[in-house]
Design a protein around this nucleic acid. Sequence first.
DNA 1: GTCTATAGGCAGATAGAC
DNA 2: GTCTATCTGCCTATAGAC
Lengths: 202, 202
Amino acid sequence: MTTNETGTRAPRGPYAKSKQRRESIVMAAHEVFAAHGYRGGSLQGVADKVGMSQTSLLHYFPSKGDLLLAVLNWRDTVTGDGGARDPRESLVDAVVRQARFNETVPGVIELYTVLCAESVTDNHPGRDYFTQRYEGLRRSYLQQFSALADAGRLRPGVDPERAAASLIALWDGIQTQWLMAPERIDMAGALRDYLDMVILPE
Amino acid sequence: MTTNETGTRAPRGPYAKSKQRRESIVMAAHEVFAAHGYRGGSLQGVADKVGMSQTSLLHYFPSKGDLLLAVLNWRDTVTGDGGARDPRESLVDAVVRQARFNETVPGVIELYTVLCAESVTDNHPGRDYFTQRYEGLRRSYLQQFSALADAGRLRPGVDPERAAASLIALWDGIQTQWLMAPERIDMAGALRDYLDMVILPE
DNA sequence: GTCTATAGGCAGATAGAC
DNA sequence: GTCTATCTGCCTATAGAC
């Protein structure tokens, strides 16, 4: 609750409704970008899905690139990405649980896979997001592998830094294959196999 | 050498030059699609690179999708993809050697990464190419891991089928990270670490 | 085989009425 | 905040002269 300088209540405006509107736009854009990519998707397509005109949509997000960033940030909140991990849960369990959860939201995987690769092209508006995301992920897993190494639980010869990058790479790559042949690929199994090799039993 | 029905020699036409022309178009398209993706790249951009008009380009490839397939098939011949492996070379050595070679042709990695992910969207003309490629790759590595398993050289508990998919996934994923931060990612190292864990020393 | 001209469509973004 | 109308630009593909 905020008040203006005079102490009287400032005119509110339909903030709540506006926020709802923005959210429905972001969710529609999520679908469109997942199905067609950023360049393949159109603002008109998003507008149609949410039931408004394309120009009205641009009232909420001044450009297509702004909308993309909103979608990417929304993804983080849904998947719990960037949040702290429960220290009572083992790394293997946490990764497997997340992988299993991801299977229930295939659209999120598709969005992530498509946009991530697309972002390495020319002046893609999502480029910074993904480079920073990778840096953060590698830092996070490096920390966890290092802690395991200190506890003598890392297989001899395993480099924590390379293992961090490899775990992320395996995860990304297996998602791509899963998108193309969901019935043939066991995402959680591949990740568990890898971590069971890298991490020694207690 | 072909002859027509009368037994006289049919007019040849400048076949060699036409073939050269097609090749230069494919190479220009390779650059364009790698830098901008399939949807982001334009026939005009390809035509400019090769120094001809956009309509002349369409004389050689009737549609943009046809051009994409030509580029993908050309990639296979360059990287030696799909060819048989020298049986005297170990799997680890072969993979590491290929990964090192790939570092010398970053444009090929970019093309592959960008188009592969883009191909999971809607009606992408490269979709079939990539699904078949993955099936073929998994079959090939499954065979090699199975042979190692028969020789007692696979780490106990490793499933050849999952290992095949995981190796491909790791490879794809590490290429993506390498594209975004080449100086921080050791592609060959990650692959060697993985295979050294999976395959027991002789 | 190569070109110019152009069809025919769709994109993102702006201006301004209501 | 939402709309219609429009600007401006680019795209793939075709038609037809040379």
